[in-house]
Simulated scan of single mutants.
Amino acid sequence: MLALNNTTDDQLAFLFIGIPGLEALHIWISIPFCFLYLMALMGNSILLLLVRSEQSLHEPQFYFLAMLAITDLGLSLSTLPTVLGTFWIGTHQIGLDGCLAQMFFIHALSSLESGILVAMAFDRLVAICCPLSYSRILTSRAIICLSGAAFIRGAVLLAPLPLFLRNFSFCRDNVLSHSYCYYPDLLTLACEDITFSSAYGLIFVLCTFAVDALFIIVSYLKILTTVLRLGASDRGLRSMHTCACHLCTVLIFYLPLISLAVLHRYAHGTPPLLYATMSNAYLLLTPLLNPLVYSLKSRQIQVALQKRLWIQRVTVGERTET
């Protein structure tokens, strides 16, 4: 184990341990990880291709879905090198600068995804509660502003976090609890007063995820009130169906996020296996399940996908005949 007393920045490194007690099985554990990453990358890439190529999907809700897919691709690519490096190749070490860069991208993309989920909730709110004003409110400019605001918010609020850690000295064992660099995890390794840094991290969570979750809850309470007023009409049933995909996506994102935050803050002495399971669920299941949810629940996505597959079969058939 490498002690970090009196080390310079270019010597400073952190260690990933994977799943303690299962080191001999890491090569086998890497196989399902490879498969899940491949599925996540393929699923989100297909969603992007569909939204870009199909005219029927050129609507605000699917533009937000495309941004969600881009964010999920970024999250997968941010964690893939260290997760597969730990379990497959056996590379357990990362330098300080690389660790801080990965940490920034993970948290910034998570914040961006939360902001996009808010924008999608706003889209459903306008579509159901103010359908006659939908095209007037959800313009191209509004979509760009909502997406840009989510990006700028995450980048600005997260910029100080790497600076805090860059100025700390690390005098404890440099073993990380996850297979990637996570701010609360890094903070526990510092040997200086972390009160301010920890408080700033809490403020960041409250200003992003807590505010976003509150807005989503309020939006769906308003949507539910409107749907109940409509009764069992076709419009009311269609409205609830269009919200199903988004609600599943919200749960897939927030439940692992909240669980991991609670484990870090309150559940000290948690078994390493539970830490490893929740940390990978937080950043791997979301990019994996989002495309599946929309493929299974969204009729428009299904039609677009079937159309692309039919065109592909026709093209292959014509080439075979010639």
Rank of each mutant, 00 (worst) to 15 (best):
L206F: 14
L186M: 09
D173V: 08
R238M: 13
M240L: 15
R166W: 11
S179M: 06
Y200K: 03
T225P: 00
E192M: 13
A190P: 08
L161R: 03
A149E: 07
L161D: 02
L165T: 01
I143D: 04
R238K: 14
A155K: 02
V211H: 08
F196N: 09
V175P: 00
S140C: 09
S219Q: 06
L146S: 06
V156E: 07
S197N: 06
F170D: 00
L163V: 09
F164M: 04
D212K: 03
L157I: 12
A149H: 09
Y183Q: 00
Y183K: 00
R166E: 03
T226E: 15
L138V: 07
G148H: 08
T195I: 14
G201L: 00
D173M: 08
A190Q: 07
R153E: 14
R166G: 01
L186A: 04
F204K: 01
H178V: 04
P160E: 05
S177K: 13
P160N: 04
N174W: 05
A190K: 00
P160I: 02
R235Q: 13
A150W: 02
I223A: 07
F151M: 14
F215G: 04
I144M: 13
R153S: 11
Y180V: 02
I143P: 01
V175C: 10
F215N: 05
N174M: 10
L189R: 12
T242P: 01
F209H: 11
T139G: 07
L189E: 03
L157C: 08
I216S: 08
V205T: 09
S198I: 00
S197F: 08
N174C: 06
T226W: 05
I203H: 12
F168Q: 05
F196M: 13
L224C: 10
R229C: 11
P162D: 01
T226F: 07
L176M: 06
V205F: 15
I152N: 09
S147Y: 05
G148P: 07
D185F: 10
S147A: 15
Y200A: 01
L189T: 05
L221C: 12
C243R: 00
A142T: 14
G154H: 00
E192L: 10
C171R: 05
A150P: 05
F209C: 06
L165P: 01
G201N: 00
L138S: 03
R141P: 03
A199V: 10
Y183I: 01
A199L: 13
A199T: 12
L158D: 00
I137H: 07
P184Q: 04
L202A: 13
I144S: 14
L202W: 11
V175T: 15
F170L: 01
E192S: 12
S177D: 08
S135Y: 13
V175W: 04
A199M: 13
A150R: 03
L138Q: 12
F164Y: 14
Y183M: 01
S239F: 07
L158F: 02
F151N: 05
L237R: 12
R141W: 08
S135V: 05
R141N: 12
D212Y: 12
N167R: 11
F196C: 08
F168S: 05
D193G: 03
A190F: 04
S239P: 08
L206Y: 14
I216K: 03
